[in-house]
Design a binder for these strands. Sequence first.
DNA 1: GCTGAAAAGCCTATAGT
DNA 2: ACTATAGGCTTTTCAGC
Lengths: 154, 154
Amino acid sequence: MEDIDVQIMKLLLEDGRMSYTDVGKATGLSTSAAHQRVRRLEQRGLIKGYRAVVDVEALGLPLTAFVSVKPFDPAAPDDVPERLAGLSEIESCHSVAGDENYILKIRVATPADLEGLLARIRFAANVSTRTTIVLSTPFDGRTPDLPGSRPVGG
Amino acid sequence: MEDIDVQIMKLLLEDGRMSYTDVGKATGLSTSAAHQRVRRLEQRGLIKGYRAVVDVEALGLPLTAFVSVKPFDPAAPDDVPERLAGLSEIESCHSVAGDENYILKIRVATPADLEGLLARIRFAANVSTRTTIVLSTPFDGRTPDLPGSRPVGG
DNA sequence: GCTGAAAAGCCTATAGT
DNA sequence: ACTATAGGCTTTTCAGC
């Protein structure tokens, strides 16, 4: 059998609104025990929250792009993430090993908005940018096969 | 005032388990009306589902990378997404404009797993790969500022 | 499309093993 | 750590505007 906590997280990954009763049924626990485990997972930070999955493309943000950034001045202290955090169009910011220092994923409404955002990124963080436009997204946000039983950080 | 449906989606983006009662309070609607609107948003596909946000890094998948892929044979019919869909380590697949054809985001446990996955990607889709390892993630999964009132696809 | 009310079911806490 | 129970609240449906 599989580690129950991992099983619970898989269930909630697929349906974040599943009731504790149903989580219990699926794992062979009582409602209380299932609820208890979920709460412990939340407290330990393994479950960080719950989100609706919203179709942002249909909602006025059809343009997605990846933006690689590299500081103009490699000697300057690196506070790029802090400087970019205020730009709400930036969905994610990853520090990476490679030719560039960061990869951002951004969402905007129009090419003109993209142009403006890139200017704000360069200005805010003193970086050069390289932009890769997303044409379509065959799949996204898939939930990984979590490795089975074990550590769970306890 | 802001379009109520957009407001509802923002609320559920931040807390996917918020009760319809609370959604109603926040939007000035009765519980029934709020519930009704959420159900319509789900049926229209604007809300695609609900997910727990799970800390996969802490859960045995600490290695994230972006993999750009390019077919060896540019003349071959492009069924790369279909061929890659079966690899569960691939979280997302974006078709992009630029030097490469697709950008994948992948998650694995170890460098050895990455090596194996890259081999499987190349073999499954007949592509070359360029891999950018993620060192850290200052932020991820931020919810965009949705453009205010309007179309909502209706 | 909204309100309001009622039944069914869920959440949460408590007590006990 | 789990089960069982019970009160309060939520979900869901339905009648009416």
